[in-house]
């Protein structure tokens, strides 16, 4: 007996969250990656606090984008390998929704955790304190967009053996607006201006992505299952 849609989606969310929480290394790993790459910038650019502060919005956003790309390669992977994805595709409940549940869980554990700890990294780069809340909110909204873009690319490459580089190749051009709006919001806030319009644009991207991406993800997953 198949449960109703709401219950079904709740079960899916529970399954994904439990599986992820059982391997905390997968959540902490990207954050350590983030920390390490942030460390590379002062080493490469020199320790001048003023220079680092001026560049910090761009640095933090580019590193966040890269670490989000690295983790989105894992989306759908285990479900594809153990056949769960095939079951989800065959179930009468829409594949788009069950895939979106996985994307949301992924975002909660990767993007949200990154947004929550980002002030620490911003402090390392000497970013002005007034920009920190904007950094956190822009990363929270922006990583949702990045997870959706990564999920579209992952749905198309999940069946391929050498999907890793290809996934970045497909995603990076699509992430340009997210990067521009995100860095603009943080820069404006760091300079003491009002960043609301940039945050609103990021929110619009996230909302639009949540509406349109599920269709692309479901189509991509079905193609990957047939290939």
């Amino acid at each position: 007996m198949l449960p109703e849609l709401g219950t079904f989606l709740r079960f899916q969310a529970q399954r994904h969250l439990q599986a992820a929480l059982r391997r905390p290394g997968d959540i902490v790993g990207p954050l350590i990656f983030f920390l390490m790459v942030v460390t590379l910038f002062p080493l490469g650019l020199g320790p001048d606090p003023a220079v680092l502060a001026a560049l910090s919005p761009g640095i933090l956003w580019v590193v966040a984008l890269l670490s989000s790309l690295v983790v989105s390669g894992r989306l759908f992977q285990s479900d594809y390998e153990d056949g769960t994805l095939e079951q989800l595709a065959l179930s009468p409940h829409p594949l788009a929704l069950s895939a979106m549940v996985e994307v949301f869980c992924h975002w909660l554990l990767s993007g949200m955790s990154l947004a929550l700890v980002s002030p620490v990294f911003a402090g390392l780069l000497n970013m002005p304190t007034q920009a920190m809340p904007v950094l956190m909110s822009s990363l929270a909204l922006g990583t949702l967009c990045l997870s959706l873009i990564g999920a579209v690319a992952a749905s198309l490459t999940v069946a391929l053996r050498r999907g890793g580089v290809l996934l970045s190749l497909l995603s990076i051009p699509l992430t340009v607006p997210v990067l521009i709006f995100g860095t603009a919001a943080v820069r404006e806030a760091a300079l003491g201006y009002d960043p609301t319009s940039w945050l609103a644009l990021l929110g619009a991207l996230a909302a639009g992505g949540c509406v349109l991406a599920p269709f692309a993800i479901a189509a991509g997953l079905r193609i990957s299952l047939e290939a």
């Binding site: 579209v152 198309l156 490459t157 391929l160 050498r162 999907g163 290809l166 190749l169 497909l170 051009p173 699509l174 692309a216 189509a219 991509g220 193609i223 990957s224 047939e226 290939a227």
Partner: peptide, 27 residues
């Protein structure tokens, strides 16, 4: 380049075309 790389990555031509179609619509 993304569309070209994706179309090369699939062995199955029909699947490659469909995947490229989805990607180009997203683009």
């Amino acid at each position: 380049l993304g569309v070209m790389a994706l179309s090369e990555a699939f062995d199955n031509k029909a699947a490659a075309a469909k995947a490229c179609a989805v990607l180009s619509l997203v683009g």
